[in-house]
Write a protein that binds this DNA or RNA. Structure first.
Lengths: 142, 142
DNA sequence: TTAATCTTTAGAGTTAACTCTAAGTCAAGA
DNA sequence: TCTTGACTTAGAGTTAACTCTAAAGATTAA
């Protein structure tokens, strides 16, 4: 049993256009076609799409995803490169998470700031709450 | 005391080109110019840049950042919109964080998978370790 | 004062990742 | 069989966010 491009697209939350674009870019060399030329996605292909989505969703550019796919197609000799790629990607994700943590602190500060401002209808927040000014200094200096 | 565009750029980790582009897009209406036409960034402007970086870094498009800046320029009447924007952005960041958490699980699985593959020089990982197959099924189904 | 190094503008070019169009082919239901 | 809707390709167009260029003006150090 296999899926058409439209069915596969729906399953992974992309459009058929996007899947064709990925194919054109060489990201889907594993997808076979029927005798009449229609792409037929297997269960295994859907899993490929999910791992592509995982890498794309964590910010890896399509070019590097293609590099990974190429390694996979090349065979067992590229296992070290693939392992290394996932280790690097894990590192990037964790760095990114730390960055977002810092950004989130600033956003939380702004929420506190504007909550007070909204309550009083003006921006004299720091006069009312000098501790918030200290927090701001801490958050925005580097 | 104030900073030239190049100094300001260095301080926030952007290029002067990018700052001019932001200015052209209307993101920096607060930056004043000297009598001879050079941009002069104040300490306060640098703080604006940092909040722009925070919003951009958490995935808010420049158009919506401009919307926020416009609200700030408009005055106290837009405090509720600004509060709302930061609340929404916080929500988005937390959703994104949850998504990354899930992606990270898949990446960690792949690391385990390729570590075993690398150790043995082949991809018969699931034959050696059926529990990893279970984990894969759990991670890649939905 | 002069050379080197900024900065200014308008506008063109780039990159990534889609997104769509046209013209034709294929498949499934009535 | 016919119609409707999904599929095919090549290739053009779009969007966001830069990134760069050219030509001219401003600033700074020697």
């Amino acid at each position: 049993m296999s899926y058409s491009i439209g069915e596969a697209a729906k399953m992974v939350g992309l459009t058929a256009h996007t899947l064709r674009f990925y194919d054109k870019e060489g990201l889907l060399p594993f997808v076979k076609k029927t005798s009449s030329g229609l792409r037929a996605f297997t269960e295994s292909d859907i899993e490929w799409l999910k791992i592509i989505e995982c890498l794309k969703g964590t910010g890896l550019p399509l070019k590097q995803i293609k590099q990974y796919i190429d390694w996979c197609m090349e065979g067992d000799s590229t296992i070290p490169q693939r392992l290394n790629m996932f280790i690097e990607q894990k590192k990037r994700v964790e760095e990114q998470k730390a960055k977002w943590e810092k950004h989130l602190e600033k956003i939380n500060f702004k929420i506190k700031y504007y909550e007070d401002a909204a309550k009083h209808g003006d921006l004299n927040v720091f006069e009312r709450n000098p501790k918030l000014l200290e927090e701001k200094k801490r958050l925005f200096e580097d």
